[in-house]
Amino acid sequence: MNAALLPDTGEPGFGVYLHWPFCAAKCPYCDFNSHVRHQQVDQDAFVVAFLKEMSVMRDISGPRTVTSVFVGGGTPSLMRPETIDALLTGISRLWHMPDGIEITMEANPSSVEAERFRGYRAAGVNRVSLGVQALNDRDLKFLGRLHNVEDALKAVRLAREIFPRMSFDLIYARPGQSEDEWIRELNEAIGYAVDHLSLYQLTIEEGTPFFGLHQNGKIVLPDPEAAARLYEITQEVTEAHGMPAYEVSNHAKPGAESRHNLTYWRYGDYAGIGPGAHGRISRQGHKYATATERHPETWLAAVAAKGHGMVEQESLERDEQADEMLLMGLRLREGLDLARWSELAGRGLDPEREAFLIQHGLLERLGNSRLRCTQSGMLVLDAVVADLAA
């Protein structure tokens, strides 16, 4: 793979998402499809299954040009480089995969080794996304992370050295976190010469250990006003450093936006492969929503029996697609492509609802072609989308 990434064309694109479901430990805030296995995972068996399901997804999609690949999890950096290489080779055999497309892999600092990182790079990975989450050891421990700050910074340095592009995640609005602490931490993060940051507010998800602790008053999050102020600070600090938000929680220097995630938000197509992966694939005038079995070993058995682990393959109605496009498009700073939305919905947006939301400073027009949320609108994005879609 060339080091230089192809430029963003602004088109939705076609992505391939691979879900590696295994983690060394389950974080107490996480509701992703991730599983801890105390026995060695048979990576060879999973590679065979991934390649089988990949072939079925290719049958659904037909011939396409891949514009990005994302290997998420779980903790993909627990994979051997040979495993990544086999999966990327499989994609290139089934679809057209030009040199220079973005190929991202998630990694946890605790599972980072220089030799392994170089192996991933040799396999074709050209962007790594590190799950740093905090830059102080107290909060890393609270978040159940297996790494400390020293591990995180070592991983950041290695990633900068080996990969053309690198991003890392931070979680804010943590219990007891002050505005000054967050400003210092954010400035420190930006100082590590990254060109992309994903910055998420801590949320309490049902079914996680944090949910019970929160219900019992053992975890107290900032109140909504304080959380909104932390969000505003996030926008101010990143903007000042030339890394504005291009999506609700994602910040980048111009040109360093995640191409794969832009495919989601621009409502492009993507094949989702692996346990618990979701996809959206268009074919012959239909758009299919796909989902696979979440439990890894059950998925593995299903693929062995029938060639795939899909539990859902639903043809979406046009109004369902329009609702999804609205929800995704308004997350973006570039906004919603109104002509594309209207063509899909078979109508325009309700002018009275739109005018009301613009009047109240929640939406704004970008010429006649796009509609986007203001910063105030982003704070109540779900409500804005619900109002427009009604």
Score class of each variant (00 low, 15 high):
237 V>M: 11
212 G>K: 02
234 T>D: 06
217 G>Q: 02
224 P>E: 08
233 I>Q: 01
237 V>A: 13
219 I>S: 08
231 Y>K: 10
235 Q>N: 14
242 G>P: 07
242 G>V: 07
240 A>E: 15
240 A>G: 15
211 F>C: 05
215 Q>L: 06
218 K>C: 10
237 V>H: 11
243 M>L: 13
212 G>R: 09
209 P>A: 00
210 F>R: 08
211 F>A: 02
241 H>N: 15
214 H>W: 11
214 H>F: 10
216 N>L: 14
235 Q>E: 14
223 D>G: 03
225 E>H: 09
229 R>H: 14
232 E>Q: 12
220 V>F: 09
220 V>D: 14
228 A>T: 02
239 E>H: 14
213 L>P: 00
224 P>H: 09
231 Y>P: 06
213 L>Y: 06
222 P>I: 03
227 A>W: 01
236 E>Y: 10
239 E>R: 15
213 L>A: 10
210 F>I: 06
218 K>S: 13
243 M>Y: 04
224 P>W: 01
217 G>A: 00
237 V>T: 12
226 A>Y: 10
211 F>N: 00
215 Q>G: 07
210 F>A: 05
215 Q>S: 05
231 Y>I: 03
229 R>N: 13
218 K>V: 11
221 L>Y: 00
218 K>R: 15
247 E>I: 08
210 F>N: 02
231 Y>G: 07
229 R>Q: 14
221 L>G: 02
238 T>I: 04
232 E>A: 10
246 Y>F: 12
221 L>F: 06
241 H>T: 09
220 V>K: 10
215 Q>D: 06
240 A>H: 13
242 G>D: 06
239 E>N: 14
229 R>W: 08
237 V>F: 09
237 V>G: 13
242 G>A: 03
219 I>W: 08
234 T>G: 06
214 H>M: 10
234 T>H: 06
225 E>D: 15
236 E>R: 15
214 H>I: 08
245 A>G: 14
214 H>G: 07
247 E>K: 04
228 A>S: 12
233 I>R: 02
221 L>A: 07
215 Q>K: 05
230 L>K: 09
234 T>E: 05
229 R>T: 10
212 G>E: 00
219 I>Y: 01
224 P>C: 01
242 G>R: 06
211 F>P: 07
247 E>G: 11
214 H>S: 11
215 Q>A: 01
218 K>H: 12
223 D>H: 00
234 T>N: 01
246 Y>N: 09
231 Y>W: 13
236 E>D: 15
221 L>E: 04
243 M>V: 10
214 H>A: 14
224 P>Y: 03
225 E>Y: 09
225 E>N: 09
231 Y>D: 04
236 E>A: 15
224 P>L: 00
222 P>L: 08
226 A>H: 15
228 A>V: 04
235 Q>M: 15
213 L>N: 04
228 A>Y: 03
233 I>S: 03
214 H>K: 08
243 M>K: 03
216 N>R: 15
227 A>C: 09
245 A>Q: 11
234 T>A: 00
244 P>N: 12
218 K>F: 09
227 A>V: 00
245 A>R: 12
235 Q>P: 05
244 P>A: 11
241 H>Q: 15
223 D>N: 08
209 P>E: 02
222 P>W: 05
226 A>D: 15
235 Q>D: 14
241 H>A: 15
237 V>S: 12
239 E>W: 10
222 P>T: 01
240 A>P: 12
231 Y>Q: 10
